[in-house]
Design a binder for these strands. Structure first.
Lengths: 208, 208
DNA sequence: ACCTGAACACCGTTCAAGT
DNA sequence: ACCTGAACACCGTTCAAGT
């Protein structure tokens, strides 16, 4: 389902395309191993191109991240839509949050980039972040309407929670990050209902 | 109660002492304005000393942070001890967490430094972090014993929560950070008891 | 169209030489 | 005992010159 490195948007000269792909490949493994703040100069070196070539293809680090993660992030948003069909609004939301956190932990430092990008309209990652946020909003709205989370919970709350938990995971251990996510998700629950098991109206997951 | 810049540990030559204090003063305002990752070279420049002088007094950025924050952090730990007398174990814990978060937000990027230092025994900030962690542990233990938080909640959980909330506050808004802390704290509560109002045995806050 | 590599303005850290 | 400032090895980003 994954095509390895994503294709550039438009037709390119053969050598340009080769450089483009080499840069993405090296960036992917460098980011995976050393985090999203890894030296761009070193990435260019590893790809065997001049530093100027890297900037030609990716004017900023965020552009590089977008090329690497954009598709994945849109897939994450799509997963959110699917989870709207989960019989339990809260469980659907929680499952999605865990998936989102897994995506965020592919590169160390990614949570910070995603937090910044969602509020910065000039960021190349902004559109993808907004899509993720929108998916979260739908899940939150449904859980809110079902009385399974506090009435004041927002999509930015969920977004911040996921990224903060991912961040904490980077700083200490992945397990610690997951614990934080668990606590945070539990804290979103409506304090009125202890455990929103609810009557559940026999059928599916309506509520357009 | 605060003496401005903390005094150096031992007697120093007059010029050394002056440089030491100038460096601390400049570092404090630079960190406050631009975060704890601000250029050390620029701090030395602002203090009117050579960069080597800065490294002479503070071999690492963490040493500088320790000089600036050590006392404050020990005071935070002391506040934790005091809050052990709070009639409500959970409220005491929560109040302390909010105080801790306020301390963490004095410099942008401080949460990351504190998360790193608590696990790095070679860090000059390590002792201070451990003191804070120990205070948290006592508060957590009391709340746990009182059945007001889950039985599996640990001091590192609380520590990570505070720093992660502070981090989130830096990335978006202080309000968002506080919301996250609220959710997180609520998530620490024992899921068995909805609201642990408890009979409360008339008197104070025993439980040695 | 695209690539190159030097140029510029920064870093953190170390260390010989001074006083 | 302490300070200085150059030295070293890095960054990110830009841009003239090439092909």
């Amino acid at each position: 389902m994954e095509t390895g490195t994503p294709a550039p948007r438009r037709r390119m000269r053969a050598d340009a395309r080769r450089n483009y792909e080499r840069l993405l490949t090296e960036a992917a493994s460098a980011f995976a191993e050393h985090g999203a703040d890894f030296s761009l100069e070193e990435i260019a070196r590893r790809a065997g191109v001049a530093n100027g070539t890297l900037y030609g293809h990716f004017p900023t680090r965020r552009a590089l991240l977008e090329a690497l993660l954009g598709d994945r992030m849109r897939a994450l948003a799509a997963t959110g839509e699917e989870l709207l069909a989960d019989p339990s609004p809260f469980d659907g939301l929680a499952a999605w949050a865990r998936t989102a956190m897994a995506h965020t932990t592919v590169y160390r430092g990614l949570g910070a980039a995603l937090m910044e990008a969602v509020e910065d309209e000039t960021s190349e990652l902004h559109t993808a972040c907004k899509a993720v946020l929108a998916a979260g909003e739908e899940l939150v709205a449904r859980a809110r309407a079902a009385g399974e989370v506090r009435t004041d919970v927002t999509a930015p709350d969920l977004y911040a929670l996921v990224n903060a938990a991912a961040w904490a995971g980077e700083q200490s251990s992945a397990a610690q990050g997951e614990r934080l996510l668990t606590f945070g998700l539990d804290g979103l629950r409506s304090s009125a209902t202890t455990r929103p098991v609810a009557p559940r109206p026999a059928g599916g997951a309506g509520l357009a």
